[in-house]
Computed example of a mutant assay.
Amino acid sequence: MSQVVELGYVGIEATQLDAWERFGTELMGMQLGSRSPDALTLRMDEKAHRWIVVSGTADDLAFTGFGCASHADLDVISERLRASGSTVTEGDAKLAAAREVQRIAITADPLGNRVELYVGLADAPTPFVSPKHVSRFVTGENGAGHQVLIEKGMDRQRLVDWYGLLGFRLTDVIDQEVAPGIVASVAFLHCNGRHHSLALANMPHPKRMHHFMIEAADMNDVGLAFDRCMDAKQPFEMTLGLHPNDRMFSFYVHTPSGFSVEFGWGGRIIDETTWTVQHLDQLSTWGHRAPEAVAALLTP
């Protein structure tokens, strides 16, 4: 079946481009790809970009780019979406050039999140060099990382079915009671070997996206990034911890736009031929505590 093969890039509409440049390069260790008065791009590997940040008032997710292996796959997925009632528009040459892809089509998920389907994300003309000496970001055939979208009260099955048209399959579900009678529920979906490239979260959150995860190849990169964020007094959402499902060792830090980046290491690669969907009741095996709770525990 024709399907998307990776989450290739993410777009953010932001009010503070200078703060985003500092956050991406000095704290996360990504490389600045390009910069203009109205936009910047950030690199994580040999590709032209993985993050596109454009000037605007939303301070939120603007679009997500999912890669297709071929033009034929893009055609099949587009027709499948149209048959289901979704609008799919072929992008023009100007948009394709701006995204540095061979071809692009635009649609929207049931939540109204803009989704860009593309073929052929270009390589940058120069090698990737992390300004903070991050060993390597884990991308390649499994894409740029993962994103967690907020369901905003929508029926989850409707969203799972829509992303299923792109080729996403359910990996597992976590339902954790975070307070008496209050359950945080997250469904995790994959389109390649990465445990999940997309998750759907039923929890209170003001943004379209709860977080985007970037993964480093060396555990020490997590600690070094954690220290950089602490030294810079960048607000944390959650401290160091480990997830039980994708086995990611990570922390969560707020971006200049208010949602978070999860900076992690050790993410699980699954074999779909042997994988069984799991239902868990704990979002973290240990850690991932709110910084205020940690501060209170450490205060004499």
Rank of each mutant, 00 (worst) to 15 (best):
M1Y: 08
Y9T: 05
G11K: 13
R22V: 06
T25E: 06
M30D: 00
Q31V: 02
L32P: 00
P37H: 04
L40Q: 02
L40T: 05
M44G: 07
A48K: 14
H49Q: 15
I52T: 10
V54L: 10
T57Q: 14
A58N: 12
D59N: 15
L61C: 09
A62M: 05
T64I: 08
G65P: 12
F66Y: 15
G67R: 15
D73L: 03
D73Y: 02
L74M: 14
D75C: 00
D75V: 01
I77S: 06
S78R: 10
A83S: 15
T89P: 02
E90Y: 05
G91H: 11
K94N: 13
A97P: 05
A98W: 04
R103M: 05
R103K: 09
I106Q: 13
V115C: 11
L117D: 07
V119E: 07
L121T: 01
A124S: 12
A124R: 07
P125G: 08
T126C: 03
T126N: 10
S130K: 13
K132E: 15
H133P: 05
V134N: 09
R136H: 14
F137N: 02
F137H: 05
V138S: 10
T139S: 09
T139F: 04
G140N: 12
K152N: 09
K152V: 01
R156A: 03
R156S: 01
L159V: 01
G167I: 05
R169H: 09
R169L: 03
R169M: 01
T171M: 00
V173H: 03
V173P: 00
D175M: 00
A179H: 01
P180R: 03
G181Q: 10
L189V: 08
H190G: 04
N192C: 14
H196Y: 13
S197E: 02
P206R: 04
K207H: 15
R208I: 05
H210I: 08
F212H: 12
D221C: 07
V222G: 09
L224G: 04
A225S: 15
A225W: 04
R228H: 04
C229F: 00
M230W: 06
K233S: 09
Q234R: 06
P235M: 11
E237R: 06
M248D: 05
M248P: 06
F249Q: 03
V253D: 08
V253P: 10
V253Y: 08
H254M: 09
S257F: 11
S260Y: 02
S260K: 01
G267F: 00
I270N: 03
I270W: 04
W275T: 02
H279G: 03
H279F: 09
H279Y: 07
D281R: 07
D281A: 03
L283T: 09
R289W: 11
L297W: 14
